[in-house]
């Protein structure tokens, strides 16, 4: 495992050549600042709300990697006062789906900081997030000597055709995509890395009903008190050293955990799926995007009569999708 970790770190160092700083404000990062790291491509329209959401949560500085956007994403980010921006020229796929880039940036800039690694369509929800800032959470984790915080990726989707309601810049995506599947997830344990492996939800139900093993992984560990020797292995699904993956309790209890609301299914999704299909830059031969494209052409409605409408974190807690643990 140590070898694997070393190899990851070396790889990240090699791939760092593909990164060039566009606007480096990392000098402004304070010793106790909360960081957010994200890799993105053509997400201009989502950015204003995304940045706003996480600023309100208490993120102090954003480390963003732009992978060849053509829609003005880079210009927009470069102009934001709390964003440091890098441009990545190479292949997303060759860079371990972006993991090598983020590993490198975090090694350089996130050491000692609580760092949140999310995509532009992922919105963190944690216990008491409506009344407490993320700093309250990380202070509490610090006091318990906990280094990582687990979540489940919860796909949210609109009622009706995915492309029916256009998404407007600055809008809360949850105004459109406010439905989710509450109880069709499968959980197993990965004996190698000791992380949980969660699948299911609307994507498994609608796109992978015949090939469930190919349904995307929903376990994520996005919030880590970073150390330069740490490394993400596959997206934010798992980390090395493996102890960081033990964000769940195995003695019957529940550890505090959150959800990442995944607002992927907005009006822009169909076009994005087609584009990603052309680029073939996604995991496992982009089979996920193939399945999307196939289904989206005929019946893009993920809603069903048992879909649950999102209200707040307490609802997710009661449904068992996240937990307060001993935090009260």
């Amino acid at each position: 495992m140590r070898l694997r970790r070393r190899r990851r770190l070396l790889r990240a160092a090699r791939k760092s050549r593909e990164l060039s700083p566009v606007r480096d404000r990392t000098g402004e990062i304070g010793a106790r600042d909360m960081l957010l790291v994200s890799t993105l491509r053509n997400e201009r329209v989502r950015l204003p709300y995304f940045l706003d959401y996480y600023r309100r949560m208490g993120i102090d500085h954003f480390l963003m990697i732009d992978n060849d956007s053509t829609d003005g994403t880079a210009d927009y980010l470069a102009a934001e006062p709390d964003v440091s921006l890098w441009h990545a020229s190479g292949s997303y796929k060759q860079a371990g789906f972006g993991v090598d880039w983020t590993n490198w940036l975090m090694r350089r800039h996130a050491h000692g900081h609580w760092t949140l690694t999310v995509d532009p369509d992922e919105f963190l929800v944690f216990p008491f997030c409506d009344t407490r800032s993320i700093r309250a959470l990380t202070d509490w984790l610090d006091s318990a000597a906990i280094r990582s915080f687990g979540t489940m990726l919860l796909d949210v989707y609109p009622k009706g055709r995915i492309d029916a309601q256009p998404y407007a810049e600055g809008q809360d995506p949850l105004e459109i995509a406010c439905w989710f599947d509450s109880g069709n997830y499968t959980v197993t344990r990965n004996p190698v890395y000791r992380n949980l492996w969660i699948q299911g939800g609307p994507r498994a139900r609608a796109f992978f009903a015949n090939r469930p093993e190919r349904a995307p992984a929903l376990n994520k560990i996005p919030l880590v008190r970073w150390h330069r020797s740490y490394t993400y292995v596959s997206s934010t699904h798992m980390l090395l050293p493996r102890g960081l993956n033990l964000v769940y309790d195995s003695q019957g209890g529940e550890k505090a955990s959150g959800c990442l609301l995944h607002a992927k299914f907005l009006s822009s999704f169909a076009a994005k799926a087609e584009e990603e299909l052309q680029r073939r830059q996604h995991y496992a031969g982009s089979h996920e995007y193939k399945a999307y494209a196939r289904h989206l052409r005929d019946d893009p409605d993920l809603w069903c009569k048992w879909s649950e409408k999102y209200i707040n974190w307490r609802q997710l807690e009661i449904l068992g999708l996240m937990s307060k643990g001993s935090w009260a």
């Binding site: 687990g150 979540t151 489940m152 997830y185 959980v187 344990r189 949980l196 969660i198 376990n219 964000v247 769940y248 309790d249 195995s250 003695q251 019957g252 209890g253 529940e254 550890k255 505090a256 955990s257 068992g320 999708l321 996240m322 937990s323 643990g325």
Partner: peptide
């Protein structure tokens, strides 16, 4: 009876 990202008993 609950399995989740927070709870996975041995």
């Amino acid at each position: 009876g609950l399995l989740s990202a927070a709870r996975f008993p041995d």
